[in-house]
């Protein structure tokens, strides 16, 4: 027989995790189907059709995926390159502390910093002018609020790079990477082969679930694209909130439709990637411990 404390604990768990999520998605689904809300006129698939036929929606999905893949791809590649080449760089000495400092910058602060650095009137533009590389403010490229999301990608890259550097440094140290490399040397591998054919793939494979979670996090990010994105090409969170807050009431069911579609995509991606790579609470616990350690 289960104890009362177990029932209370599981009740609290449901009240603070599953129930809010189900309520939220349920309400969004009903609203998107015209079954609730001030404008509801009974069941309709019109809003779903409108969203699925809308170029803006697909463009925002593709743009979100592009931003996430490019920024995290660059951060993971560079972090792997540095850690595999120089595994002890961030293990000891002042760098073992300083590498944590970028994690202290909230997304909104990072977005503001990038804006002040990369906009047409920003620090880099001023530097380019002083060095004679540009003749006026207008000559500086559109790195912020531009079509290619360079500012957004830079901000996410700068936030993700220290995280993956710390992660791979700790993994290299704690997950038997030295022994694996040694084994490769014994079997006749060169330094380069041991690094790129053994250590790098092993580190990437072990971090795959974290990489997927980080990709999802970047795809759903809000503050950075809100400040650094363009009006014509928006990331999915920004598009959803803008549709929700517009004066056109017809946009609200579409905002909820996008929310439901996004929720389903995230749930499928998360659940399909987590068990496959044996993502467990223990890993998160250890990772958090090691990320904050030193």
């Amino acid at each position: 027989m289960q104890k009362t404390s177990t029932y209370i604990g599981l009740g609290l768990f449901l009240a603070l995790t599953a129930i809010p999520l189900l309520l939220g998605i349920g309400y969004a689904l009903l609203f998107s189907l015209g079954l609730t809300g001030i404008l509801s006129e009974g069941f309709t698939l019109e809003h779903w059709r409108a969203v699925l036929r809308s170029a803006a929606f697909w463009e925002s999905i593709v743009f979100s995926a592009y931003v996430a893949l490019v920024s995290i791809g660059m951060a993971v590649s560079l972090a792997l390159f540095v850690v595999v080449r120089r595994p002890h760089t961030f293990e000891k000495g002042p760098l073992s502390f300083f590498i944590y400092l970028p994690l202290a910058l909230p997304a909104i602060v990072m977005a503001f910093f990038i804006f002040q650095m990369m906009s047409k009137a920003g620090f880099l533009s001023r530097l380019a002018f002083q060095l004679g590389l540009t003749r006026s403010l207008g000559h500086f490229p559109d790195w912020v609020n531009g079509q290619y999301g360079i500012g957004i990608i830079t901000a996410h890259f700068l936030m993700a790079l220290p995280f993956f550097l710390i992660l791979y440094t700790q993994m290299y140290r704690h997950e038997g990477m030295r022994a694996l490399m040694q084994q490769a040397y014994t079997l006749g591998a060169t330094r380069r082969q041991a690094a790129w054919r053994v250590a790098a793939p092993a580190l990437f494979r072990r971090s795959f679930a974290t990489v997927v979670l980080y990709l999802l996090f970047v795809m759903g990010s809000y503050e950075i694209p809100l400040l650094l994105g363009s009006q014509s090409r928006q990331m999915v969170s920004v598009l959803t909130i803008q549709k929700l807050q517009r004066f056109n009431l017809d946009d609200i069911p579409q905002a909820y439709t996008i929310s439901v579609l996004y929720s389903m995509a995230v749930i499928v991606l998360a659940l399909s990637s987590l068990p496959a790579y044996k993502w467990s609470g223990r890993k998160l616990f250890n990772r958090s411990r090691t990320v904050l350690k030193e």
Partner: peptide, 24 residues
């Protein structure tokens, strides 16, 4: 199973979760 459920709000974009819950 319980843990899998706990991961969902964790991977969800907080702003979209807020948009869905705003009504309540």
């Amino acid at each position: 199973r319980w843990l899998a459920m706990a991961y969902l709000p964790y991977v969800f974009a907080p702003v979209i979760l807020a948009a869905c819950l705003q009504y309540f």
